[in-house]
């Protein structure tokens, strides 16, 4: 069973999680994203649970540096 997720769709969903508009791609450094805060973490966890059936740990979430890291985390969380 493949767990790969569509990047374009995923980055769009992450953009919706943010309270401030911010266009994302795989190389985006999360530390530069204005709305990537503790509220966004909660919304992100809800979104990946809902849209991907993925459970992610908060520690791993905090360790993500780029948007691509987030996608990889969600893929791991689906296994």
């Amino acid at each position: 069973m493949t767990t790969a997720i569509d990047r374009t769709e995923f980055f769009q969903r992450v953009e919706e999680v943010l309270s401030e508009p911010h266009a994302l791609d795989g190389d985006t450094q999360l530390s530069t994203v204005e709305g990537w805060d503790s509220l966004a973490f909660v919304t992100f966890i809800a979104m990946v649970d809902d849209s991907y059936g993925a459970a992610v740990s908060v520690q791993e979430l905090l360790a993500c540096k780029t948007a691509e890291d987030l996608a990889a985390l969600v893929e791991r969380g689906r296994q």
Binding site: L39, F41, V42, I45, A46, D49, A55, V56, V58
Partner: peptide, 12 residues
């Protein structure tokens, strides 16, 4: 409170 951890716990 670590809100994200608490949320993850309730989902689990």
């Amino acid at each position: 409170m670590n809100g994200a951890e608490i949320f993850t716990f309730t989902l689990r």
